[in-house]
């Protein structure tokens, strides 16, 4: 059995009221599924890596707002976000360089498949996935930085005013 109590299940004192927590618990799966749908179908329908990444990052932001930042950071730590962010950007920069092997930088060298199928368009879905990961991680990291550092700074200001 799990040794640590799951914050998502317990309606503990942290975060918002049980109503918000319950709604977020229901919405969470749908938000993440929709985000991934937008990323994976980026080459077929409107949207893509950036739009989908923003939706995924919003999912994490809602989690953090409803359940407190401990849960947010447990699901995606700042170090983890930074590693995902940089790896995705590095892959996005490196994969086009493999195009040199086939003649041109940024050449779409993978099999194009049949148009309008999920597995088609060669490299483009790959780029969408990289961008999706990068945007999710960066936006969540920015949100956490603003909320954590914001509190840190306002505490400093308060101390200065008192002292």
């Amino acid at each position: 059995m799990a040794t640590k109590p799951d914050i998502m299940i317990s309606d503990g004192p942290k975060g918002m009221t049980p109503i918000v927590k319950t709604v977020v618990r229901f919405a969470m799966g749908i938000i993440f599924m929709f985000g991934w749908y937008i990323i994976l179908y980026g080459h077929l329908t409107p949207g893509g890596g950036f739009a989908g990444g923003v939706i995924l990052a919003c999912g994490y932001v809602i989690l953090t707002l409803a359940f407190g930042k401990e849960l947010g950071l447990r699901k995606l730590s700042d170090m983890g976000a930074s590693i995902i962010d940089n790896t995705a950007a590095l892959l996005f920069a490196v994969v086009p360089m493999f195009g040199f092997l086939f003649g041109w930088y940024f050449l779409n060298f993978l099999d194009k498949g049949r148009p309008f199928q999920l597995f088609s368009a060669g490299n483009i879905p790959l780029y969408n996935i990289f961008i999706g990961f990068k945007v999710t991680a960066s936006l969540f990291a920015i949100f956490m930085a603003l909320s954590i550092f914001g509190r840190f700074v306002s505490k400093l200001v308060d101390e200065e005013e008192e002292g």
Partner: peptide
């Protein structure tokens, strides 16, 4: 001539590689 895009590709890749390696 064939490697001309490397002028942007190398520093871009290195910028992100740098942040990973220095962890």
């Amino acid at each position: 001539q064939g490697l001309y895009p490397l002028f942007t590709a190398i520093p871009l890749a290195a910028a992100f590689l740098n942040l990973l390696v220095t962890k």
